[in-house]
Design a protein around this nucleic acid. Sequence first.
DNA 1: GTTAGTTAGTTACTTTATGTAAGTTAGTAT
DNA 2: ATACTAACTTACATAAAGTAACTAACTAAC
Lengths: 102, 102
Amino acid sequence: MDKSICPRFEKAMGFLSQRWTGMIIYQLLSGPQRFCTIESSVGVSGRVLSERLKVLENEGIVKRDVYPETPVRIEYSLTDKGLALEPLMKDIEKWSQNWLDA
Amino acid sequence: MDKSICPRFEKAMGFLSQRWTGMIIYQLLSGPQRFCTIESSVGVSGRVLSERLKVLENEGIVKRDVYPETPVRIEYSLTDKGLALEPLMKDIEKWSQNWLDA
DNA sequence: GTTAGTTAGTTACTTTATGTAAGTTAGTAT
DNA sequence: ATACTAACTTACATAAAGTAACTAACTAAC
């Protein structure tokens, strides 16, 4: 192994390329959302969504807010660190529109 | 499931978020390379590298050239479609430098 | 001509990640 | 007490990835 690649880049790529992580972040770009909304709009299973949100929260990319209503409302949203991924998401959008057929 | 997300975006995200795919493309941005070079610099196993290169070739993102030397030299490189992913890779680079610690 | 060396894979098998569906917790409301 | 809801979690099955050994095709050395 050569491993001449920047470790920060590798780390970023490491979790961005976990299945569903990108879609979850993309979905949250449209605003704070609750668990079940992300689950159904992205099409990810609750088991994995729960796992991913924990990682993203630990990384400081996603924030979790609890509103003690009835029933409880828990909203997930992007932090500044998460919002900083927007240009990247836009690039994927652009690329897909330019190079993939509908 | 809502699935209001653009299907082209989903497709792009679908294979960009396969493990190793991003790293392979990033590595190929530095020029045409042979199988064993990608394998060692990226740190991906031959089994998976072989699988990914096939997908990327089918998608028209990577090109495979055979030079019948001794021993045979086979070089993988990015097509225009693949090179068009450069801005995206640069965004990941920038983000990782701004938001991750070394 | 047989043994060895090289790159580019593939195969068989193990470990890890994800999908699926049922269950749990907490807080009302009936 | 029973039922309803959101947000998870757990147990179990399937799919993807890691590992190491193996094959193919070619050449070179002995």
